[in-house]
Amino acid sequence: MIIGIALFVFPFIYEDRSMLILFTQIFIFAIFAMSYDILLGFTGIVSFGHAMFFGIGAYCVSVMLKHHEPTMLLVTGAISLGVLFSLIISFVVGLMTLRLKSHYYAMLTLALAGLFLVAAEKWRTLTYGNDGFTFQVPEFFHDRLHFYLVCLVLMVIVYFGLKRFIQSPLGRILLAIKDNEQRAESLGYQVLHYKIIASIVAGGIASLSGSLYALSLRFVNTSVFTMDITLDALLMTIIGGVGTLIGPVLGAAIIELAHHWLTGLAKVHWIFERWLILFGIVYILAVMFFPNGIVGSVRKLVSKKEKKEDVSTSENIVKEG
């Protein structure tokens, strides 16, 4: 909570454009990573095609703004349209693919995301291919501060919305499916329906983050459909903590900040120009030693401490007795 308020106040105290933009990016990717965690952390679905929805959201907004007068109404409309598209596509895709078991599903999502990438490359009249295109954003967003606040608010809304979602009876079933699919089925839950619901929710929110991403750059090209985007989400979720909502937010912050500072360090030593290498090492170490991510590891430590205290108090009781 304190951090949240601090983030609201932050831009008014500290006026640095590049930091503002960096934080906006963090919020956007936090939304995206949270949506990915709904699949990975709460339902146990490994998808490599999540960039698909990100890209749909990005292109929906960009194309609409390119061809029409940029107004706030249009932006909201375009974002909603992107979300709607994503809902439909995730439903159809889910219906077709979610019957498959884990890695087969992962491969198929990879292929589908590839399909969207190729389509975006080839449909040059609409997307201008890999070169991409710039577009105008409404007056309101010309001020970076406004955009920063909008993204922050949306992130908070998504956070609490998803929190409610996973704590609903339906969310509990998703967790059960992650834990033991077969058992969930024999309790009378139609597993496929729940997986589709999860992927629809995740798809819609991913599209929202994609739209914001395009708005923040005022430019779009086919990179929004690439595997890198999905991998970023995967990385953020895993480093932050799978199966928690705050984890992806933290992960997004860490990765974006690290990205920013490591590239900044390039002047100091040439190795920082290859910051991806360092990142890979950190990633491997994280997966090996903190498989639960930051949040998961901290939680474990806390619960261990509590247990120890429990034991020591009970020992005291025994001694006194």
């Binding site: 409610r164 609903s168 009876p169 969310g171 509990r172 079933i173 839950y189 329906h193 619901i197």
Partner: peptide
């Protein structure tokens, strides 16, 4: 109660 997604489970 299978598709209730908006209330808290508690």
């Amino acid at each position: 109660l299978r598709y209730q997604a908006f209330t808290h489970y508690r």
